[in-house]
Each structure stands twice: as C-alpha cells, then as structure tokens.
Design a protein around this nucleic acid. Structure first.
Length: 285
DNA sequence: AATTCGTGGGC
DNA sequence: TGCCCAAGAAT
C-alpha cells in the first residue's frame, strides 16, 4: 500500500479542509458536511461556515435558524443540528478544543465511528484506521479481490485497514487520506480508472481478472413521494422565508394533506421547525 | 439489522 | 431517462 503515499502527495485534490492551516474544528465541520454529500457541494458552504464560525463556541452562539440557513441545501439537515449541538458540548465541556480521542469524539452528537476517526487522523495526525465507503471499496478490491464491498462489518473492516497502516503516525494519517482519495477519484464505484491506479500491479481484483461483484445488493433508495422529499420541500419554504409563514404557505408545498401534516409534525419533533404562538411556522430560534 | 433521513449530478 | 451514488449516524 505504500505506493499510495507518493501518489497522494503528487495528485491529491487541493480541498480547503486539507490545507495546513485548517484546524481540527475545520476538519470536524468538513466531516459532518461530507456525510453522504459530495465534495463539490460541500466546498462553498464549508468556506462560508468557517469564516462565520471559526471556533466551536462561535457556532454554539448562533441560532438554529442561522445554522440551518447556512447549511442550505446540503441535505440531511439534522446533521446541521447535531453539529450545532456538538459545538456546544465542545465549547462548554472541552474548553472550545475539539477532542482528539476517538472515544470522546464518538460521544459527541452526530459523530460516529467514521467521523471520530477522520478527525483523529486528519485533524490530529494520528495513526487511526478510517473506514468509509471509499476505503471499504478499495480494500474489497485491492486486498480481497472482490468487485465491491459487501455489507459493512465494523470490526473486520477496521482490522483490514489497521493492517495496512505503517507504524509511523504522520505517514499512517497520510495513507488514511490516500485510501479515501483513491476510492473517490480512481477506484470508483462505477467505471474505475484502473489504467491510472498506483495499486494496479498488486491489486487482487485486477490480478483475478476483475470479477463482477456477486454479493448482496443494497436495496435501492426511493425518494420521489417519500417523507424525505416532503420534509425537504417544507424546510425549503421555511429556509427561504424572511419571516414566519402561515400554514397555507406550507400547504402549497405538497398536495397530500395527510402526508404533509405528518411530515410537518416530524420536523417540529426533530427541532428543524417551530410553531409560534400566533400559529405561524418558522425555522427554530 | 434494516430503515430512515435530502439533494443533485453523472451516466 | 431513470437509476445509482455521494468522506454516515441514529434508531
């Protein structure tokens, strides 16, 4: 796996959260935004976010409405709320310093196994296996000779990557980033660019003749007509409104009244919206 | 362990 | 065009 280190040094994308001046807080923010959202859409939002809220306590002091507006259309807006909550915990319980310990990180709202390890590795240069969908695919192919990663197996996946990391901490951290980069730009899910892959010579999948993936397929995720779409429509109305809106404005966003009301209620429960005393609706203060 | 949770671009 | 996918987490 060592060929990945010089390859990464030579070809890595110049992403703003990878620049040397980026703080662990900047890394944490980027990882929240990158959960299920492509790099290209995250970049401009991250830049403005860090300018507005350069430290956790600054974000913690902002209103949820401001946070949700800044999050914009990145999707899964509950992530924005969890980041807001995590910032408050960091500010009040960790003296405004992002934790470097994986277990402490994982205790923060919205921080799971991947994000905790990414912050430890990319924010603090630790030797720490980082397993995301890209890394699982690279390991499945290069190490196991399978066309794709099957269902996640947390412990086994971590052990696979742990075995690849060199002893040297900064080199291990760089390799972690390189594995993700390879999966993102070369060893992609569809149409992998094996011709330019630095691992080609030793890749188990390549050497096996690139057999097709045979394992279980993940169930395709419907979107049109789901609550997820309706919630998105409703929240888009609230995000775009300069003042609280009447219910009629939300009614116009989706025709099925029962589904619409159920989704509005779920937004209230999630803290993504609130109803004022006069009956109007708005992003939460 | 299987579902739910947004949004949009690429093929 | 419709389908698949994108640096996951919580339940």
């Amino acid at each position: 796996m060592h060929p990945l280190v010089p390859w990464f040094a030579a070809t890595a994308r110049d992403l703003p959260w990878r620049r040397p001046e980026t703080t662990p807080w900047g890394v944490l923010v980027s990882e929240f935004m990158l959960q299920q959202t492509p790099v290209a859409r995250v970049e401009p939002v991250w830049l403005r976010w860090m300018a507005d809220w350069p430290v956790p306590s600054a974000l913690a002091a902002a209103s949820r409405a401001d946070v949700l507006r800044a999050w914009g259309k990145l999707g899964y807006p509950r992530r924005a709320l969890r980041l807001h909550q995590a910032a408050a915990v960091i500010a009040t319980e960790h003296t405004d310093v992002v934790p470097s310990d994986v277990d402490v990180l994982e205790s923060l709202p919205g921080v799971g196994s991947y994000t905790a390890r990414a912050v430890a590795a990319f924010g603090y240069g630790k030797r720490c296996p980082v397993v995301d969908t890209n890394v699982r695919r690279v390991v499945a192919r290069a190490v196991h000779g399978r066309g794709d990663a099957g269902p996640a197996r947390a412990r086994a996946d971590l052990a696979d990557v742990e075995a690849l990391l060199p002893p040297d901490e900064p080199t291990a951290a760089t390799l972690s980033a390189a594995l993700m980069e390879l999966g993102a730009v070369v060893c992609t899910a569809r149409s992998p660019r094996c011709e330019v892959c630095p691992l080609r010579a030793g890749c188990a999948w390549q050497n096996a003749g690139r057999p097709e993936y045979t394992g279980p397929r993940k169930a395709p995720q419907a979107f049109a007509g789901t609550d997820r779409q309706v919630r998105g429509r409703l929240l888009d109305v609230l995000r775009g409104a300069a003042a609280p809106v009447e219910k009629a404005a939300l009614d116009a966003a989706w025709s099925d009244a029962a589904q619409r009301d159920r989704c509005l209620d779920s937004l209230l429960v999630d803290g993504l919206a609130e109803q004022l005393d006069d009956g109007r609706f708005a992003l939460p203060a």
